[in-house]
Simulated scan of single mutants.
Amino acid sequence: MEPNGNVLEEADRRLDVAFSALADPTRRAILTRLSRSEATVLELAEPFPLSQPAISKHLKVLERAGLITRRRDAQRRPCRLEADALRGATDWLDEYRQFWTESYERLDTLLADLHPANPEAGGPGEQR
């Protein structure tokens, strides 16, 4: 069953938003930190030379991309990584990883056929 255009368009839109969010090194560092445990805005801002409002803007981008969620915990609003949201980007990248793996395997086979490992076979410039 072929997915309809709307499903593909939505998947492409989510992928665009995710890659856009991942394009910034500060946001990637925030995700790396959240991969260890949830954290508040203040905790996330600590290692960066950025203001809390600047970190909050980064968090909003990550939240819109579905890469993080925030919840209320009394006075705290901890952020949590939503690893499943990375699945679309990972799946997309895996398709290309598979393509390149197969391409390199074909190249290895071709090179092995052109230059056999057997030294007795001889070759240009080889002395006998």
Rank of each mutant, 00 (worst) to 15 (best):
A21F: 03
A21I: 02
L22S: 03
L22M: 10
A23C: 07
A23Y: 07
A23V: 03
D24G: 11
P25E: 15
P25S: 15
P25M: 15
P25C: 13
P25N: 14
P25R: 15
P25L: 12
P25K: 15
T26W: 05
R27C: 01
R27E: 02
R28H: 07
A29H: 08
A29L: 09
L31Y: 03
L34M: 08
S35D: 10
S35A: 15
S35I: 06
S35N: 11
R36G: 03
R36S: 07
S37H: 15
V41C: 08
L42I: 04
E43W: 03
E43S: 05
L44Q: 01
A45S: 10
A45L: 02
E46W: 06
E46F: 07
F48I: 02
F48L: 05
P49A: 08
P49M: 05
L50G: 01
S51H: 08
Q52R: 11
Q52Y: 06
Q52M: 07
Q52K: 09
A54M: 11
A54C: 06
I55E: 00
S56H: 10
S56I: 05
K57G: 04
H58T: 00
H58A: 01
L59E: 00
K60M: 09
K60E: 07
L62M: 05
L62P: 00
E63S: 15
E63R: 12
R64Q: 10
A65P: 01
A65Q: 02
A65T: 02
G66V: 02
L67S: 01
L67D: 00
I68R: 01
I68V: 15
T69V: 08
R70A: 04
R70K: 12
R72H: 13
R72D: 04
D73Y: 06
D73K: 12
Q75G: 04
R76P: 00
R76W: 02
R77F: 10
P78Q: 05
P78M: 03
P78Y: 00
C79H: 06
C79A: 14
R80C: 02
R80N: 03
E82D: 10
E82C: 12
A83E: 08
D84C: 07
D84Y: 11
A85L: 06
A85K: 06
L86S: 04
R87V: 07
G88M: 09
G88R: 11
A89G: 12
A89W: 04
T90S: 13
D91G: 11
W92F: 14
W92T: 01
D94Q: 13
D94W: 12
E95W: 10
E95Q: 14
Y96G: 10
Q98L: 14
Q98D: 15
Q98S: 12
F99L: 12
F99Q: 09
W100E: 10
W100V: 08
E102A: 11
E102V: 05
E102P: 00
S103N: 14
Y104S: 09
E105R: 14
E105P: 00
E105Y: 07
E105I: 07
E105W: 08
R106P: 01
